[in-house]
Structure formats: C-alpha cells, structure tokens
Simulated assay, not measured.
Amino acid sequence: MVEPDQPSTARMIDFWLGGEHHHAVDVAAARAFEQAYGPCAPVFRSLRAFLGRAVRAIAATGVDSFLVFGAGVPTMGNVHESAPEATVLYTDVDPVTIRLGQRLLAGSDRAGYGFGDATDIGTIDPALLHRFVPGWGRRPVGVVFLGLAAFLADDVLARTLDELYTATAPGSHLAIDFDTEELAGYPEALAMMGPAFRMRAPATFGSLLGRWTPTSEGIVAVRHWRPARPVEPVPDAFYGAVAVRSTG
C-alpha cells in the first residue's frame, strides 16, 4: 500500500482508539493536534463507547440493519462489531477511506462500504442499500450520524435530518452527536479544524433534530448517555442522543 501524504481524520481517530489502520502522516497530525489541545484518546474512546451503547440500544428494539454516514475506519468497536447480528452499510465521501473500508470488510456478508453523502441520500448505491439495509423506507432501521453535524450549517443539518426522517420508516432510530464549545479555549486547535467547523451551545442541539424525538435520556454529554460504570472523566467535547422517528 502506498503511504499517503495527507492525514485523514478517520485514520487519526483510529490511532487515538489504538487501532492499526493509520500511517505516519496521521500520527504526526494527531500529535500536532494534541500539542494544541491535549490528550485526545480518552475523548474519542468516550465517543466510540457511546456509539457502541447507542447501537446496542437500537438493536435491542428489534432493529437489525444500520446505515452509517461518515463512517471512517470500520474497526475498534464500530457498528457491525457492536451489533454482530445486524447488517450494516458504512458510507463516506472520502475515496481513500472507502477503499480501506472495503478492504477491511471484504470477507463479510453482513457489512459493506460505499460512497454516501449524508446531505444527499440519493448518492448511495441502491444495490448496496438494498443488500445491507433491506426494507429501507419500509422497516425500522438505525441511522448513525456521528462526526458530521459540526461540519454542516444549521439549515443544511436541519434539512438533512428532516430528509432522513422522511426517508426512513416509523420506528427508525438516529444516533447523533454534536460538538460543544470545548475548543473555544484552544484557538490553535480550533484553527486546525478548518473554517467549516461549527461549535454549538448544548441549548441549541434539540431544535436541530426537528421531528426526531430523543429517547428519555435526552441530548447529553456522551459519557452520560446510559453510562457504563465507572464513567471515565473526560472533557465534554461531544453531546449525543438516540432519537426516534414517530410511529404516528
């Protein structure tokens, strides 16, 4: 495999999670961000643990297929590892990440990886959607939307979530996270996130969900969503929720 010359956020997160699918350029970028902010591994472990708890909670309702946007590297407790009986379609817009995901899942008959832009679900290959998310639009599914809200303007995010609400069947679930204003105190780290990055105050998160209804836990710091014990003390950089599409 050719060593990439540009870092990838997906592979940086893999590094922070202790995975094996990253390169020297990703480690260098991760270390630079840590110099500007602080240790990131505990924060991303907390976010990945939230993903696992959310996926297991959704699967416990009877949902047996998941559509994942902005999927990154499909390892280290990602969706198909958290719900091994479910079928999962991972999607991303980065071709290098997609090729890596396809290579890692090549032997799986329950998980696939393809192109998919969360803001335009029509970009997903219908054959992949039919294979790995059977009954899309007719049966409840789980939609995973982590790491994306911070890079979408309010109107785009609200429209995207509303389109997903319309496209999914009643009883479907959405797992989502939001970036808080944690990086406001770290201007160098904030600059590294780029001009599209949006921090938001927790009070604004609920309105962005539109018709999606959060479960009784609400939208909370990810370490406090149905927490495992003990709760790892990390900065509350991410809030998360599982929300439901009404059956009415």
Rank of each mutant, 00 (worst) to 15 (best):
V2E: 15
D5G: 12
Q6V: 15
S8W: 08
R11C: 04
R11G: 04
M12H: 08
D14W: 02
D14N: 11
W16S: 07
G18E: 03
H22G: 01
A24Y: 00
V27L: 01
R31S: 09
R31L: 05
A32T: 12
F33L: 03
F33K: 00
E34N: 11
S46K: 03
A54R: 06
R56M: 11
D64K: 07
D64G: 09
S65M: 02
P74L: 02
P74Q: 04
T75C: 12
M76H: 11
H80C: 01
V88K: 02
D92R: 04
T97D: 08
L104D: 06
D109H: 02
R110W: 00
D120H: 13
I124Y: 01
A127L: 11
P140K: 05
V141H: 15
L148A: 12
A149F: 02
L152G: 12
A153T: 14
D155F: 08
Y165I: 13
T166N: 11
P170E: 00
D177L: 01
E182T: 06
L183D: 05
G185F: 11
A189R: 02
P195R: 08
F197G: 04
M199R: 07
L209N: 07
G210H: 01
T215L: 14
G218R: 14
R223E: 14
R229C: 10
V231K: 10
P233V: 11
A241D: 10
